[in-house]
Computed example of a mutant assay.
Amino acid sequence: MELQVKTLEGGAAGSITVSDEIFGLDPRTDLIHRVVRWQLAKRQAGTHKALGRSEVSGTTKKFVRQKGSGGARHGNKKAPQFRGGGKAFGPVVRDHSHDLPKKVRALGLKHVLSAKAKSDSIIVVEDAKAAEAKTKALKDQFAKLGLTSALIIDGSELDRNFALAARNIPMVDVLPVQGINVYDIMRAHTLVLTKAAVTALEERFK
């Protein structure tokens, strides 16, 4: 598969041949969905907690007589139906993450890259570098490329000026190639890859 390469100013800079095994697959939404669920579950803090009836303070003395009150036969103020009582089946601190095989994770990334390529939502740029950390200048360049919601993936190291200029632009994320992930790709409308990122991805899946 051949993709056109552009400059940050929106000009043409030739073309690049990319692997069909990464960018030319028929996208499987079930694989992408599994990886996104795995990512989001792993991100959950799981620090939610409610006190059960064994953890709240309250008397366990029988506070109403067994018969003759006209009410139920209660023997504990900590029961869930009383104000200040413990929560029945409340949330507890736990780990929400679950296992997902590495092969499925790798396939999910390939299929989401193929999905972006199939919908013409990938832009390959020569590099992601800025002479100075000026957000306004970078926004003007993005406007020429037609970027509103984008994930920009560079090589193993980000250009400091580019990263600083981009971090104030809403709906634009910049990551090194090691940080590429299915959820962020799906969240962004356009995926922007540098030539270094494409090379690194092909090396990774070789």
Results as ranks from 00 to 15, higher is better:
residue 91 P to N: 09
residue 109 L to T: 00
residue 84 G to I: 09
residue 18 V to N: 02
residue 178 Q to S: 05
residue 59 T to G: 13
residue 90 G to P: 10
residue 166 A to L: 06
residue 60 T to C: 03
residue 32 I to T: 11
residue 74 H to F: 14
residue 20 D to C: 10
residue 139 K to C: 01
residue 90 G to A: 08
residue 136 K to Y: 10
residue 161 N to E: 13
residue 115 A to C: 00
residue 138 L to V: 15
residue 118 K to N: 13
residue 6 K to G: 00
residue 197 A to R: 02
residue 177 V to W: 01
residue 193 L to S: 01
residue 26 D to V: 10
residue 56 V to F: 03
residue 178 Q to E: 07
residue 72 A to M: 04
residue 162 F to E: 01
residue 198 V to C: 06
residue 151 L to F: 09
residue 98 H to C: 00
residue 90 G to W: 04
residue 57 S to G: 04
residue 48 H to S: 14
residue 173 D to C: 04
residue 117 A to N: 12
residue 88 A to Q: 12
residue 72 A to F: 00
residue 27 P to A: 00
residue 123 I to L: 15
residue 176 P to R: 13
residue 13 A to M: 02
residue 94 R to V: 09
residue 137 A to L: 14
residue 86 G to R: 02
residue 127 D to P: 01
residue 80 P to V: 00
residue 56 V to H: 05
residue 122 I to Y: 08
residue 60 T to E: 07
residue 93 V to L: 09
residue 169 I to M: 02
residue 89 F to W: 14
residue 185 I to K: 06
residue 97 S to K: 13
residue 36 V to A: 06
residue 42 K to W: 11
residue 150 A to Q: 14
residue 139 K to Q: 15
residue 36 V to Y: 03
residue 127 D to L: 00
residue 158 L to I: 11
residue 164 L to M: 11
residue 175 L to I: 02
residue 83 R to I: 11
residue 51 L to T: 03
residue 126 E to S: 13
residue 176 P to W: 01
residue 98 H to Q: 09
residue 188 A to T: 03
residue 136 K to L: 13
residue 30 D to E: 15
residue 184 D to F: 01
residue 126 E to D: 13
residue 174 V to D: 07
residue 162 F to C: 01
residue 125 V to P: 08
residue 161 N to R: 11
residue 57 S to I: 07
residue 138 L to R: 07
residue 13 A to W: 05
residue 205 F to K: 09
residue 146 G to N: 11
residue 128 A to R: 05
residue 77 K to T: 15
residue 171 M to Q: 12
residue 19 S to N: 15
residue 80 P to D: 06
residue 132 E to I: 09
residue 16 I to N: 05
residue 38 W to I: 03
residue 28 R to S: 06
residue 171 M to L: 11
residue 129 K to V: 14
residue 175 L to Q: 12
residue 132 E to N: 00
residue 23 F to N: 08
residue 10 G to E: 07
residue 174 V to M: 10
residue 71 G to T: 08
residue 97 S to V: 10
residue 21 E to S: 14
residue 44 Q to D: 11
residue 9 E to T: 13
residue 91 P to E: 10
residue 100 L to H: 04
residue 31 L to R: 07
residue 83 R to V: 15
residue 79 A to L: 04
residue 183 Y to V: 02
residue 111 H to I: 08
residue 204 R to M: 06
residue 110 K to H: 11
residue 183 Y to L: 08
residue 29 T to A: 09
residue 27 P to N: 08
residue 73 R to A: 15
residue 73 R to I: 14
residue 181 N to R: 06
residue 149 S to Y: 00
residue 120 D to W: 00
residue 31 L to H: 01
residue 2 E to L: 08
residue 76 N to V: 08
residue 40 L to T: 12
residue 15 S to N: 11
residue 187 R to A: 09
residue 47 T to C: 04
residue 161 N to T: 09
residue 176 P to D: 15
residue 167 R to A: 02
residue 115 A to I: 05
residue 179 G to Y: 03
residue 184 D to V: 01
residue 196 A to H: 04
residue 141 Q to I: 01
residue 59 T to I: 05
residue 41 A to K: 04
residue 105 R to E: 10
residue 76 N to M: 07
residue 134 K to H: 13
residue 63 F to M: 12
residue 190 T to F: 03
residue 64 V to E: 09
residue 41 A to D: 12
residue 158 L to T: 13
residue 92 V to A: 12
residue 180 I to D: 05
residue 87 K to T: 14
residue 81 Q to D: 00
residue 169 I to P: 03
residue 86 G to N: 03
residue 149 S to V: 07
